[in-house]
Design a protein around this nucleic acid. Structure first.
Lengths: 147, 147
DNA sequence: GGTATAATGATAAAGATAATCAATATCGTA
DNA sequence: TACGATATTGATTATCTTTATCATTATACC
Protein backbone atom coordinates (compact mmCIF):
# COMPACT_ATOMS: atom_id res chain seq x y z
CA UNK A 1 0.00 0.00 0.00
CA UNK A 2 1.26 3.38 -0.99
CA UNK A 3 0.45 5.21 2.22
CA UNK A 4 2.33 2.75 4.37
CA UNK A 5 5.42 3.29 2.28
CA UNK A 6 5.04 7.01 2.84
CA UNK A 7 4.93 6.48 6.56
CA UNK A 8 8.02 4.29 6.55
CA UNK A 9 9.80 6.88 4.51
CA UNK A 10 8.84 9.45 7.12
CA UNK A 11 10.27 7.26 9.87
CA UNK A 12 13.52 6.94 7.98
CA UNK A 13 13.87 10.64 7.49
CA UNK A 14 13.35 11.23 11.18
CA UNK A 15 15.75 8.52 12.21
CA UNK A 16 12.93 6.58 13.79
CA UNK A 17 12.52 2.86 13.70
CA UNK A 18 10.03 0.52 12.20
CA UNK A 19 8.39 -1.75 14.71
CA UNK A 20 5.72 -4.37 14.49
CA UNK A 21 3.42 -2.25 16.62
CA UNK A 22 3.73 0.69 14.28
CA UNK A 23 3.25 -1.53 11.27
CA UNK A 24 0.15 -3.00 12.74
CA UNK A 25 -1.32 0.28 13.94
CA UNK A 26 -0.74 2.10 10.69
CA UNK A 27 -2.15 -0.76 8.71
CA UNK A 28 -5.31 -0.91 10.77
CA UNK A 29 -5.69 2.85 10.88
CA UNK A 30 -5.46 3.22 7.14
CA UNK A 31 -7.89 0.41 6.59
CA UNK A 32 -10.50 1.87 8.90
CA UNK A 33 -12.53 4.51 7.15
CA UNK A 34 -13.56 6.45 10.20
CA UNK A 35 -12.59 9.30 12.44
CA UNK A 36 -10.80 7.42 15.18
CA UNK A 37 -9.87 8.52 18.66
CA UNK A 38 -6.88 7.01 20.40
CA UNK A 39 -9.23 4.85 22.42
CA UNK A 40 -11.05 3.74 19.26
CA UNK A 41 -7.89 2.55 17.57
CA UNK A 42 -6.66 0.97 20.77
CA UNK A 43 -9.87 -1.04 21.06
CA UNK A 44 -9.72 -2.22 17.47
CA UNK A 45 -6.11 -3.28 17.58
CA UNK A 46 -6.46 -4.91 20.97
CA UNK A 47 -8.96 -7.40 19.60
CA UNK A 48 -6.24 -8.90 17.47
CA UNK A 49 -3.14 -8.22 19.47
CA UNK A 50 -2.94 -7.92 23.22
CA UNK A 51 0.64 -6.78 23.04
CA UNK A 52 -0.07 -3.19 22.09
CA UNK A 53 -0.22 -0.56 24.79
CA UNK A 54 -2.39 2.53 24.87
CA UNK A 55 0.62 4.80 24.96
CA UNK A 56 1.96 3.32 21.76
CA UNK A 57 -1.34 3.91 20.02
CA UNK A 58 -1.32 7.54 21.11
CA UNK A 59 2.28 7.98 20.06
CA UNK A 60 1.73 6.36 16.69
CA UNK A 61 -1.28 8.51 15.91
CA UNK A 62 0.78 11.54 16.72
CA UNK A 63 3.44 10.35 14.30
CA UNK A 64 0.84 9.72 11.64
CA UNK A 65 -0.34 13.29 11.99
CA UNK A 66 3.23 14.58 11.84
CA UNK A 67 3.93 12.53 8.77
CA UNK A 68 1.02 14.18 7.04
CA UNK A 69 -0.94 10.98 6.61
CA UNK A 70 -3.73 12.07 8.88
CA UNK A 71 -5.11 15.16 10.49
CA UNK A 72 -6.62 15.88 13.85
CA UNK A 73 -10.29 16.71 14.00
CA UNK A 74 -11.87 18.24 17.03
CA UNK A 75 -15.64 18.35 17.22
CA UNK A 76 -15.52 20.20 20.50
CA UNK A 77 -16.25 17.24 22.74
CA UNK A 78 -12.80 17.21 24.24
CA UNK A 79 -11.64 14.19 22.29
CA UNK A 80 -9.10 14.30 19.52
CA UNK A 81 -10.00 12.24 16.51
CA UNK A 82 -7.79 11.34 13.61
CA UNK A 83 -8.86 11.02 10.03
CA UNK A 84 -7.03 9.96 6.89
CA UNK A 85 -5.53 12.59 4.76
CA UNK A 86 -3.69 10.51 2.25
CA UNK A 87 -6.07 9.50 -0.47
CA UNK A 88 -8.67 11.80 1.03
CA UNK A 89 -8.74 15.31 -0.26
CA UNK A 90 -9.17 18.12 2.19
CA UNK A 91 -12.74 18.60 3.30
CA UNK A 92 -14.80 20.28 5.95
CA UNK A 93 -17.51 18.90 8.18
CA UNK A 94 -21.20 19.39 8.53
CA UNK A 95 -22.26 17.95 11.85
CA UNK A 96 -25.71 17.24 13.26
CA UNK A 97 -26.11 18.56 16.79
CA UNK A 98 -28.80 16.03 17.63
CA UNK A 99 -27.66 12.69 16.31
CA UNK A 100 -24.00 13.36 15.67
CA UNK A 101 -24.15 12.24 12.07
CA UNK A 102 -21.90 14.24 9.83
CA UNK A 103 -21.06 14.64 6.20
CA UNK A 104 -17.82 15.70 4.66
CA UNK A 105 -18.17 18.72 2.46
CA UNK A 106 -15.95 20.32 -0.07
CA UNK A 107 -16.34 23.38 -2.23
CA UNK A 108 -13.67 24.70 -4.49
CA UNK A 109 -15.39 28.06 -4.43
CA UNK A 110 -15.29 28.13 -0.65
CA UNK A 111 -11.62 27.24 -0.56
CA UNK A 112 -10.82 29.95 -3.05
CA UNK A 113 -12.73 32.55 -1.11
CA UNK A 114 -10.90 31.63 2.06
CA UNK A 115 -7.59 31.95 0.29
CA UNK A 116 -8.48 35.41 -0.83
CA UNK A 117 -9.37 36.47 2.69
CA UNK A 118 -6.17 35.05 4.11
CA UNK A 119 -4.09 36.87 1.53
CA UNK A 120 -5.91 40.10 2.16
CA UNK A 121 -4.70 39.94 5.76
CA UNK A 122 -1.16 39.21 4.70
CA UNK A 123 -1.23 35.72 6.16
CA UNK A 124 0.10 32.54 4.61
CA UNK A 125 -2.36 29.70 5.03
CA UNK A 126 -1.18 26.33 6.24
CA UNK A 127 -4.54 24.70 6.76
CA UNK A 128 -7.98 25.41 8.07
CA UNK A 129 -10.83 23.74 9.86
CA UNK A 130 -14.43 24.49 9.13
CA UNK A 131 -17.09 22.80 11.19
CA UNK A 132 -20.68 23.64 10.58
CA UNK A 133 -23.11 22.55 13.24
CA UNK A 134 -26.83 22.18 12.75
CA UNK A 135 -29.57 19.68 12.14
CA UNK A 136 -29.38 16.94 9.57
CA UNK A 137 -32.32 16.32 7.23
CA UNK A 138 -33.70 13.63 9.52
CA UNK A 139 -33.41 15.54 12.78
CA UNK A 140 -34.50 18.82 11.29
CA UNK A 141 -37.69 17.43 9.90
CA UNK A 142 -40.62 18.77 11.97
CA UNK A 143 -42.40 16.05 13.85
CA UNK A 144 -39.45 13.70 13.83
CA UNK A 145 -36.88 13.38 16.53
CA UNK A 146 -33.33 12.39 15.83
CA UNK A 147 -31.87 9.28 17.44
CA UNK B 1 -25.19 48.03 30.54
CA UNK B 2 -27.42 46.31 28.09
CA UNK B 3 -25.75 42.93 28.06
CA UNK B 4 -25.89 42.56 31.80
CA UNK B 5 -29.63 43.15 31.71
CA UNK B 6 -29.89 40.41 29.11
CA UNK B 7 -28.07 38.04 31.38
CA UNK B 8 -30.26 38.83 34.35
CA UNK B 9 -33.29 38.30 32.21
CA UNK B 10 -31.89 34.92 31.24
CA UNK B 11 -31.47 34.01 34.89
CA UNK B 12 -35.05 34.95 35.62
CA UNK B 13 -36.40 32.88 32.81
CA UNK B 14 -34.49 29.88 34.04
CA UNK B 15 -35.52 30.34 37.63
CA UNK B 16 -31.93 31.03 38.62
CA UNK B 17 -30.77 33.59 41.11
CA UNK B 18 -28.72 36.70 40.92
CA UNK B 19 -25.68 36.62 43.15
CA UNK B 20 -22.89 39.02 43.78
CA UNK B 21 -20.43 36.54 42.30
CA UNK B 22 -22.38 36.31 39.07
CA UNK B 23 -22.77 40.05 38.91
CA UNK B 24 -19.08 40.52 39.38
CA UNK B 25 -18.02 37.82 36.95
CA UNK B 26 -20.34 38.93 34.19
CA UNK B 27 -19.32 42.52 34.64
CA UNK B 28 -15.63 41.72 34.41
CA UNK B 29 -16.09 39.31 31.55
CA UNK B 30 -18.00 41.78 29.46
CA UNK B 31 -15.49 44.49 30.14
CA UNK B 32 -12.53 42.36 29.11
CA UNK B 33 -12.12 42.34 25.37
CA UNK B 34 -10.33 39.05 25.07
CA UNK B 35 -10.85 35.36 24.57
CA UNK B 36 -10.81 34.20 28.15
CA UNK B 37 -10.36 30.75 29.56
CA UNK B 38 -11.88 29.82 32.90
CA UNK B 39 -8.47 30.19 34.48
CA UNK B 40 -8.00 33.60 32.88
CA UNK B 41 -11.22 34.98 34.26
CA UNK B 42 -10.58 33.39 37.61
CA UNK B 43 -7.19 35.09 37.82
CA UNK B 44 -8.59 38.48 36.90
CA UNK B 45 -11.47 38.38 39.34
CA UNK B 46 -9.33 36.98 42.13
CA UNK B 47 -7.19 40.09 42.14
CA UNK B 48 -10.15 42.09 43.33
CA UNK B 49 -12.16 39.56 45.24
CA UNK B 50 -10.78 36.54 47.06
CA UNK B 51 -14.26 35.23 47.70
CA UNK B 52 -14.84 33.76 44.26
CA UNK B 53 -14.12 30.12 43.66
CA UNK B 54 -12.89 28.51 40.49
CA UNK B 55 -15.99 26.38 40.20
CA UNK B 56 -18.20 29.43 40.22
CA UNK B 57 -16.22 31.00 37.42
CA UNK B 58 -16.57 27.84 35.34
CA UNK B 59 -20.28 27.64 36.07
CA UNK B 60 -20.87 31.27 35.26
CA UNK B 61 -19.05 31.06 31.95
CA UNK B 62 -21.21 28.11 31.05
CA UNK B 63 -24.28 30.13 31.87
CA UNK B 64 -23.01 33.02 29.80
CA UNK B 65 -22.65 30.69 26.85
CA UNK B 66 -26.11 29.26 27.41
CA UNK B 67 -27.59 32.70 27.63
CA UNK B 68 -26.17 33.51 24.24
CA UNK B 69 -23.91 36.27 25.49
CA UNK B 70 -20.75 34.43 24.61
CA UNK B 71 -19.52 31.54 22.59
CA UNK B 72 -16.92 28.89 23.13
CA UNK B 73 -13.82 29.01 20.98
CA UNK B 74 -11.45 26.11 20.73
CA UNK B 75 -8.10 26.65 19.08
CA UNK B 76 -7.21 23.02 19.50
CA UNK B 77 -4.93 23.42 22.50
CA UNK B 78 -7.32 21.65 24.82
CA UNK B 79 -8.51 24.79 26.54
CA UNK B 80 -11.96 26.24 26.15
CA UNK B 81 -12.00 29.96 25.66
CA UNK B 82 -14.97 32.24 25.80
CA UNK B 83 -15.52 35.31 23.71
CA UNK B 84 -18.25 37.93 23.66
CA UNK B 85 -21.08 37.48 21.32
CA UNK B 86 -23.30 40.32 22.35
CA UNK B 87 -22.15 43.44 20.58
CA UNK B 88 -19.74 41.33 18.56
CA UNK B 89 -21.01 39.99 15.30
CA UNK B 90 -20.17 36.48 14.32
CA UNK B 91 -16.66 36.11 12.96
CA UNK B 92 -14.07 33.51 12.19
CA UNK B 93 -10.42 33.33 13.18
CA UNK B 94 -7.15 33.53 11.39
CA UNK B 95 -4.46 32.22 13.70
CA UNK B 96 -0.68 32.36 13.43
CA UNK B 97 0.95 29.01 14.09
CA UNK B 98 4.19 30.58 15.21
CA UNK B 99 3.34 33.45 17.48
CA UNK B 100 -0.28 32.71 18.27
CA UNK B 101 -1.51 36.11 17.18
CA UNK B 102 -4.88 36.00 15.54
CA UNK B 103 -7.28 38.26 13.74
CA UNK B 104 -11.00 38.04 13.57
CA UNK B 105 -12.29 37.78 10.08
CA UNK B 106 -15.68 38.15 8.55
CA UNK B 107 -16.93 37.88 5.03
CA UNK B 108 -20.54 38.13 4.04
CA UNK B 109 -19.73 36.31 0.85
CA UNK B 110 -18.18 33.45 2.77
CA UNK B 111 -21.16 33.18 5.08
CA UNK B 112 -23.52 33.10 2.16
CA UNK B 113 -21.56 30.42 0.40
CA UNK B 114 -21.57 28.28 3.49
CA UNK B 115 -25.31 28.67 3.81
CA UNK B 116 -25.77 27.45 0.29
CA UNK B 117 -23.67 24.39 0.91
CA UNK B 118 -25.55 23.57 4.08
CA UNK B 119 -28.87 23.84 2.34
CA UNK B 120 -27.70 21.71 -0.53
CA UNK B 121 -27.15 18.90 1.96
CA UNK B 122 -30.55 19.41 3.52
CA UNK B 123 -29.12 20.56 6.81
CA UNK B 124 -30.27 23.46 8.94
CA UNK B 125 -27.34 25.49 10.19
CA UNK B 126 -27.14 26.51 13.81
CA UNK B 127 -23.61 27.89 13.83
CA UNK B 128 -20.19 27.21 12.48
CA UNK B 129 -16.57 27.58 13.39
CA UNK B 130 -13.90 28.39 10.88
CA UNK B 131 -10.32 28.52 12.04
CA UNK B 132 -7.61 29.19 9.52
CA UNK B 133 -4.08 28.44 10.64
CA UNK B 134 -0.97 29.81 9.03
CA UNK B 135 1.68 32.45 9.37
CA UNK B 136 1.00 36.08 10.13
CA UNK B 137 2.67 38.82 8.11
CA UNK B 138 5.45 39.15 10.64
CA UNK B 139 6.22 35.45 11.07
CA UNK B 140 5.79 34.68 7.40
CA UNK B 141 8.31 37.26 6.31
CA UNK B 142 11.47 35.46 5.18
CA UNK B 143 14.42 36.19 7.40
CA UNK B 144 12.32 37.16 10.37
CA UNK B 145 11.31 34.93 13.22
CA UNK B 146 8.01 35.17 14.99
CA UNK B 147 7.39 36.19 18.58
C1' DG C 1 -38.74 37.60 58.98
C1' DG C 2 -39.37 32.75 57.53
C1' DT C 3 -38.43 29.22 54.37
C1' DA C 4 -37.63 26.37 50.26
C1' DT C 5 -33.99 25.83 47.50
C1' DA C 6 -30.48 27.68 44.38
C1' DA C 7 -25.56 28.97 44.70
C1' DT C 8 -21.13 28.86 46.56
C1' DG C 9 -16.30 27.26 47.56
C1' DA C 10 -13.37 23.66 48.43
C1' DT C 11 -12.36 19.44 47.08
C1' DA C 12 -12.58 15.24 44.69
C1' DA C 13 -13.60 12.83 40.47
C1' DA C 14 -13.50 12.11 35.74
C1' DG C 15 -11.48 11.93 31.29
C1' DA C 16 -8.02 12.71 28.06
C1' DT C 17 -3.19 13.50 26.83
C1' DA C 18 1.60 13.49 27.95
C1' DA C 19 5.64 12.09 30.77
C1' DT C 20 8.42 8.49 33.17
C1' DC C 21 11.26 4.46 33.28
C1' DA C 22 13.06 -0.17 33.29
C1' DA C 23 13.04 -3.74 29.93
C1' DT C 24 13.18 -4.83 25.06
C1' DA C 25 13.71 -4.41 20.08
C1' DT C 26 15.79 -2.26 16.12
C1' DC C 27 19.33 -1.34 12.80
C1' DG C 28 23.81 0.45 11.29
C1' DT C 29 28.23 -1.28 11.75
C1' DA C 30 32.10 -4.28 12.60
C1' DT D 1 26.07 -12.68 12.22
C1' DA D 2 26.91 -10.52 16.46
C1' DC D 3 27.48 -6.15 18.77
C1' DG D 4 26.04 -2.01 20.79
C1' DA D 5 24.02 2.54 20.86
C1' DT D 6 19.69 4.03 21.34
C1' DA D 7 14.88 4.28 19.87
C1' DT D 8 10.58 1.94 21.39
C1' DT D 9 7.48 -0.30 24.25
C1' DG D 10 3.92 -1.15 27.96
C1' DA D 11 2.51 -0.09 32.34
C1' DT D 12 2.03 3.34 35.23
C1' DT D 13 2.00 7.89 36.92
C1' DA D 14 1.52 12.75 36.28
C1' DT D 15 -0.72 16.63 34.39
C1' DC D 16 -4.26 19.44 32.91
C1' DT D 17 -8.96 20.86 32.18
C1' DT D 18 -13.67 20.26 33.01
C1' DT D 19 -17.30 18.40 35.80
C1' DA D 20 -19.47 16.43 40.03
C1' DT D 21 -20.09 16.37 45.07
C1' DC D 22 -21.65 18.27 49.32
C1' DA D 23 -22.05 20.85 53.51
C1' DT D 24 -22.78 25.63 54.23
C1' DT D 25 -24.54 30.09 52.87
C1' DA D 26 -27.34 33.29 50.30
C1' DT D 27 -31.39 34.48 47.58
C1' DA D 28 -36.08 35.59 46.56
C1' DC D 29 -40.73 34.81 47.14
C1' DC D 30 -44.39 34.67 50.56
Amino acid sequence: MEAIAKFNQFLRQKGLRRTKQRDELVEVFLRTEKHLSTQDLFDIVRKKDKDVGYATVARTLKLLAESGLCRVVDFGDGVQRFEHKYGHEHHDHLICLKCGRFVEIYSKKLEKLQDEIVKKHGYIQEYHKLHIFGLCPRCGKPGKRGK
